[in-house]
Structures are given as structure tokens and as C-alpha cells.
């Protein structure tokens, strides 16, 4: 019993501690690659690195909110691909870019509503619900695109604002991270998200509308997926119907979990998610520069994610050990 005592004391600070420790890991990795490779700190490479971190960090904001309230969205990578197509086709139909973007995000919101509705009202686990919509949306995007990529509409200025200019996507990511951090820590929405994930019955007994919180976070995640897809479309100049996919979804969830968000629900951090995305980005970028091939890289990333998840669950075990 002597060990959990100190945990009891610092229980509330445990997650701040985890944010700090993942920050140290990020700095160590950054330092290692900066020393071992001359090109790592070059302007061009830092820009590439920022463009790798940004999409994972934005989507992680949504997945973290969902994980905290006890759910997950596997379909967000497919929404990522769908949004720029809706935008491009709207512009082609003469609706203009602004309406195109609004329409695209509205469609994303509807997908979130469907994900949340099926999960909450029909009590299907979100893992299953969103696995279904993952295939559904993917098929839909492939159908409307007939499998071909489209060019991103809009002039150079618009494109630069929305992701094409060097760090603009990263700045969008930072802005969204800051807003979502404030939502989680300083708004009722965030507090109730934690309450629903921490004690569903208790939150309901206290009068919190758990269905509203959960559905809202599904909508948020889908919309953030759409935003990321659109930013990436502007950055690259075109969109492929298979862009994003399970790869970006997995990176986002892994970012959240590496950053310290609990897989069991009830706690998590947005800043940790940004740090998690940074760690994954630095690994990816550093190993690419070092000339390690993609297959080896996948093994390294897979291993890193596994270790982070095991650490996550062990920390939860220690928290539980503090009581009873």
C-alpha cells in the first residue's frame, strides 16, 4: 500500500504529468534527429514535418472528445476524402467555393449525426457503427468520383489561406487545438463529456443529457475530418477518393492515446493529442530522412503505438490501484 499513497496525493496531476512526459519524449526525438541528420532542421523539412503533424492533430481533437465520452469514430478518414469531393462538385455545379465548403461540412455533420444516432439510439457500439459507415462512405465517394481524383477549385490566395502556404495548415491545427483545449477544460461541454465517459449513469442522474453529448462529439469529429480533408485538398491541389482513409484515422487515435487520453473513457487531454501527433510526425519524418524504408517504418510506428497503449492502460491500472 505504500506505493499508491503518493499516487493518491498526486492523482489529479497524473495526466498533466503524462503531458509533460510525452513532451519530453517529443523533444528528445526531435533533438536526436536534429543531431543525427543535417537536413532535419532545414526550412523545407520543418515545413514537411508540420504538414504531417497538422492533419493528425486536428482529427485527434475529435477522436479525443469521443474517447473521453466512451466512443470512437473509425469512419473519419472516409469523411476526410468525401468532403473535398462535395466541395469540388458544388463549385462545378456553379454554387461557388464558399457554399461548396459549407455544403461539404454540412454533409460531414450529417454523417456524424448518423454515426451518433445509430450508436446512441439503437445502442450499437460505435466501433461497429462507424466500421459500417466507413465502408458506406468510402463506396459513396468512389461512386460519385467514379474513382478519379479531382482538382481543388479556387484561386491561389484562397488555397494559400486554406493550407497550401507553408505553415498555414499547421496554424489551422494550432487554432483548432487551442479552441478544443478550451472547450474541454473551460466549457460545460467538455466537463459533461468527461462526466458521461466517467460515469454514464451518474451523469444521467445528475440530469446531463448523455445522448446529446455523444451525438455532438460524433458530429464534431466528422466535421473536423471534413475540415482536414479540405485543408489537405488545398495544400496538394487535388483530391483522391482514397485519400485519408483508415491510415489518418489510426494516426489520430494513436496521437490521442500516446498523448495520454484514456481508452476506458472519462479522461484525456487535447494538448497531449497535439504532442502525440508531433511524436508520430517526428518519427515518420526522421526515419524517412534517415532512408529507412516504408515497410520498416510501419513496424517501428506499430511498435511505438503498442508501447504507448500498454503504458496508457498500465497508468489506468495504477489509478484504479489507488482505491479499493
Amino acid at each position: 500500500m505504500s506505493q499508491p499513497i503518493s499516487l493518491r496525493r498526486h492523482g489529479s496531476r497524473l495526466f498533466a504529468l503524462r503531458e509533460a512526459s510525452i513532451l519530453v519524449v517529443a523533444i528528445l526525438l526531435f533533438g536526436y534527429f536534429a543531431i543525427s541528420n543535417d537536413n532535419f532542421l532545414s526550412g523545407a523539412n520543418l515545413q514537411t514535418l508540420s504538414q504531417f503533424i497538422a492533419p493528425a492533430a486536428i482529427i485527434a481533437c475529435g477522436e479525443i472528445m469521443l474517447l473521453i465520452c466512451g466512443e470512437i469514430d473509425l469512419s473519419v478518414g472516409q469523411v476526410f476524402a468525401l468532403a473535398p469531393f462535395i466541395m469540388a462538385f458544388s463549385v462545378k455545379a456553379g454554387l461557388g467555393l464558399f457554399i461548396g465548403i459549407v455544403l461539404a461540412l454540412l454533409v460531414c455533420a450529417v454523417v456524424g449525426l448518423i454515426n451518433g444516432g445509430i450508436t446512441v439510439l439503437l445502442r450499437v457500439p460505435s466501433f461497429v457503427t462507424t466500421l459500417g459507415t466507413l465502408f458506406l462512405i468510402n463506396g459513396f465517394t468512389l461512386t460519385i468520383s467514379r474513382g478519379y481524383p479531382v482538382n481543388t477549385p479556387g484561386g491561389a490566395t484562397i488555397a494559400n489561406i486554406f493550407g497550401a502556404e507553408g505553415y498555414s495548415e499547421f496554424l489551422w491545427a494550432l487554432l483548432i487545438v487551442l479552441i478544443m483545449h478550451a472547450v474541454l477544460r473551460h466549457r460545460r461541454w467538455g466537463l459533461h463529456t468527461i462526466a458521461v465517459g466517467g460515469n454514464l449513469t451518474g451523469a444521467t442522474e445528475a440530469g446531463i443529457n448523455a445522448a446529446r453529448i455523444k451525438v455532438g462529439n460524433f458530429v464534431l469529429t466528422s466535421v473536423l475530418g471534413g475540415v482536414t480533408g479540405i485543408l489537405e485538398a488545398f495544400r496538394i491541389g487535388s483530391t483522391d477518393p482514397l485519400a485519408g482513409g483508415t491510415n489518418i484515422m489510426f494516426l489520430a487515435v494513436a496521437s490521442g492515446v500516446i498523448g495520454g487520453t484514456s481508452l476506458a473513457g472519462g479522461s484525456g487531454t487535447i494538448i497531449g493529442g497535439l504532442l502525440g501527433a508531433t511524436v508520430l510526425g517526428v518519427l515518420q519524418d526522421g526515419f524517412t530522412l534517415a532512408g529507412i524504408n516504408a515497410f520498416t517504418f510501419d513496424m517501428i510506428i506499430g511498435g511505438a503505438i503498442l508501447i504507448a497503449m500498454i503504458a496508457n492502460i498500465r497508468v489506468q491500472g495504477m489509478r484504479k490501484g489507488g482505491r479499493r
Partner: peptide, 28 residues
Amino acid sequence: QDLALVNTLPIYHNMFLNRELRTPFGML
């Protein structure tokens, strides 16, 4: 009977659960 407390929240948040005090800007 089950107390309706959220384990992962601090005491003061539990005390004000779903009746949070907010600043004029709607922040907690």
C-alpha cells in the same frame, strides 16, 4: 444510492455537476 459521482473529476466539479458556475462569457 450510487451517489452519481464521476470518479475522474475533482471534488469541486462533482459538487457542481450539471449546475456549473460560469463567467459572463460562459466559461467555467
